[in-house]
Amino acid sequence: MADKMDMYYFSPTGGTKKVSSIFAAALGRDVVWHNLGSKQTISGKPQGELAVVAAPVFGGRIPSVVREKIKKLDGKGKKAVTIAVYGNRAYEDALLELNDILIESGFTVIASAAFVAQHSIVPEVGAGRPDFEDEKEIRAFAEAVQRSTAAENVHVPGNHPYKPEMNVAVTPISLPSCMACGVCEKVCPTAAIAQEDGKMVTDAEKCILCMACITACPQQARVLPPPLLQKTENMLAAFKTVRNKNEVFF
């Protein structure tokens, strides 16, 4: 394989970027980084012979912002690797969805992986991951990709039709301590946040509950509504003491 690769990633809270960075360093190539969370247009033509697409798992699917952007990539004659980063619960149809889109775009998906990172809403789930043991597995996956001579699409778990997308019933809210500095608006990947009459307002139809605004807020003035946070914590309580595994496919 050539020495250059394109890394397409979406990492609203940092977990996917960390996994991607470990993988890229272990692969030892010249990396062209493409942030799928940026509002800027992503180039449709990868520069290298290998493209890597890394995305977090939202309710067993890939986020809509990732789906719409990678559909525009031109993969003719290119190989690809897919990475789903999940919050210690399950990745369900996310890898299959990623692979289906890239194959439809002309890529040959030679390898895929699902790696665990700390949950974006309930940090006690998958706390501290990817940790040292995860890093070893991510590096081993990268080294195996580097050695790979595969020329056919890899098979991954998942179902057709995909499970329904996560329903975003409510959005993050701003506390009275909000200074309306605009950081949340700047980092929102779907342009769901706007300033109106000196307050930050969120469009529920555009919000994908990625948590980027909460993570980026310098005043810690963006939070989930308490009922939603409590519901999510209750739903994921059983996963706080479970160490789910990473999985790789060639």
Rank of each mutant, 00 (worst) to 15 (best):
A221W: 02
K163N: 08
L50M: 04
A2Q: 10
G128V: 10
L27W: 00
L73T: 10
V66W: 07
P46H: 06
D131V: 11
V248N: 00
V248H: 01
D6Q: 05
E97P: 13
H155Y: 07
V170C: 03
K186G: 04
V32W: 00
A113E: 01
G48V: 11
K39L: 14
L102S: 08
P189I: 13
P226E: 02
P56S: 06
C184F: 07
V19L: 02
P172M: 00
C210V: 09
E133W: 02
A113W: 04
D30P: 08
D6H: 02
T232P: 02
P130S: 07
A150N: 09
I110H: 03
M235Y: 12
A194H: 05
R89L: 08
R139V: 13
P164R: 06
S177C: 04
E92N: 15
K72R: 15
K245S: 12
E68W: 08
S38G: 15
K206D: 03
N246V: 09
P123E: 06
K17E: 03
P218S: 11
R67A: 13
V32F: 02
V183T: 15
M235A: 15
G198C: 05
L27I: 12
E233S: 15
T16Q: 03
V31S: 02
Q146C: 07
A142C: 11
E135V: 14
P130E: 00
P157E: 03
T241I: 10
V242S: 00
V156R: 05
E137I: 08
P46Y: 02
A90S: 14
R61N: 15
I110C: 06
K18T: 14
M1I: 06
R67G: 12
R222H: 06
G48T: 12
P226W: 00
S120Q: 05
S20M: 04
F250I: 02
V122Y: 00
V52Y: 01
V201P: 01
A84K: 05
F10C: 09
T190C: 10
Q220E: 13
K69A: 08
N99A: 11
A194M: 03
G44V: 12
E104C: 09
P226V: 09
V52N: 04
R61H: 10
F249E: 00
K71G: 10
E205M: 12
I42L: 06
V156T: 12
L98N: 07
A151F: 02
P226D: 02
A94P: 12
K17T: 01
A90C: 12
S64Q: 15
V53F: 03
A237S: 14
F141E: 01
K231L: 09
G15D: 00
Q40L: 13
E135P: 05
A51D: 01
C188A: 07
L36W: 11
A55P: 10
K240Q: 13
K79W: 00
R147H: 10
G77F: 06
M166T: 14
S38V: 14
G198F: 07
L36R: 09
M7W: 01
K231E: 12
A140F: 09
C188G: 06
K71R: 14
V32A: 12
G59V: 13
Q219T: 14
E143T: 14
K17D: 00
P157F: 08
S11G: 11
K163W: 01
A194F: 01
L102D: 01
K78Y: 05
T149C: 04
A221Q: 07
G182M: 08
K206N: 04
P46R: 09
G158H: 08
P161E: 03
D134Q: 10
C184R: 02
E92P: 07
K136A: 15
R243F: 00
A90R: 11
